[in-house]
Design a protein around this nucleic acid. Structure first.
Lengths: 213, 213
DNA sequence: AGCTGTGAAGTCATTCACAGCC
DNA sequence: GGCTGTGAATGACTTCACAGCT
């Protein structure tokens, strides 16, 4: 038998995305069913994928299945949790308490998936000191101290687009290791920092395109 | 010269996504520069892509460029706007005025890109009748009438996950042509309805994975 | 000389199909 | 008999490289 996780092989990003879908599907499934095992076909159905890709995705990381039985659900969940590095909660900082920032502060889905927004910043004096959903809004100037104190590695940028780059610089300066940019602005960070982009209008535009066909 | 848009050739979805990025990049660029033309290389830089893919993407739809000059910015913008079918604003209905729903109602980015949330629904008596950002919250029961009256074709689902499928059914029944699901729930709609999914924790999970490497 | 448009080549991801195991 | 794990085959998307136009 092989000696588990081949860290050498590069994992396709789509695989990572599906892995998180499998995790959710399994969590839901566990609540609805008493089954101990799930086959690649079943899991595929739960996550809207075909069985082959499920097996291939999982096989990048190890041999978790048993011939003729499938995958033991609890074990597989543990493995995926490990792979995705969500065994413990991740603390997140949020910069920009406008409409979107407030919404993300109030969105329960993050915590459920293992991410908790621990601190929020703004530079608007009227907002500073207020509490949104139990989280006190702090002065942007205190960002370096706060994130150092709390060892926060991940930040959301939810400021207006024009300020996005400036905030990103601040975050990098403060030692942030990953940034998720919710603004439409394109920003640059040094390669050691993981940068991802959430674009809320993306799917709308795709829809618009297909409606025109 | 060829006779423009080859509707037969299937367009890769990544192309559609990039097209919307090109549009934004061009809009921004227009505001900052007096240039009349842009080359595929320049546009690529603006949108973080390489020149080849820019040319390839545009070539699916026609021959918009001029040898040795590049693409005329205004003309290219018009063409992309046509392709993406965003010449006129699209009306959008929103179902579920919780945290996320409220945020989307207050998010100015949609209107800027040609989408305007025209009507919002909830089934919570306390919320019905209230106004959020100029939009009156209506009784979910009135959805069929309202969307018919306003000829709305696109809806956001921002209800709690457990109610997502039920709302989707309602929307399909009411003749909606496209649905954007902001809940983590996986939902089913008939194939004639365009279904897209926005998952706010997706990028967080990807980040978590890479932080663990 | 500079830049587009596009076949051809190359790269990456998914699906097939089947040997091996329970 | 049923299901995994995985090379091989296929398919999708991107990049290369260059002919042709201005």
């Amino acid at each position: 038998m092989k000696k588990t996780s081949n860290k050498k092989n590069k994992i396709p990003e789509p695989t990572i995305l599906r892995l998180s879908a499998y995790r959710r599907a399994l969590q839901d499934y566990k609540e609805q069913s008493a089954a101990k095992f799930v086959s690649s076909r079943q899991l595929g159905e739960l996550a809207n994928r075909n069985a082959s890709i499920v097996r291939k995705d999982l096989s990048y990381f190890g041999e978790y299945g048993m011939p003729s039985k499938g995958y033991e659900i609890d074990h597989l969940l543990d493995q995926i949790v490990n792979i995705m590095n969500v065994k413990q909660q991740h603390a997140v900082a949020l910069v920009g308490v406008g409409n979107l920032g407030k919404a993300l502060l109030g969105y329960p889905g993050f915590k459920k998936q293992g991410f908790s927004i621990e601190v929020a910043f703004d530079n608007n004096a009227i907002k500073i000191g207020k509490k949104i959903q139990e989280i006190k809004v702090r002065n942007l100037k205190d960002l370096p101290l706060e994130v150092a104190k709390r060892e926060i590695k991940i930040s959301f940028i939810t400021v207006p687009a024009v300020a996005a780059q400036e905030v990103a610089n601040l975050l990098v300066e403060a030692g942030m290791r990953a940034i998720i940019n919710f603004t439409p602005a394109r920003i640059w960070v040094p390669p050691k920092v993981i940068l991802r982009h959430v674009d809320l209008t993306r799917e709308l535009e795709v829809v618009s395109y297909y409606l025109g066909k």
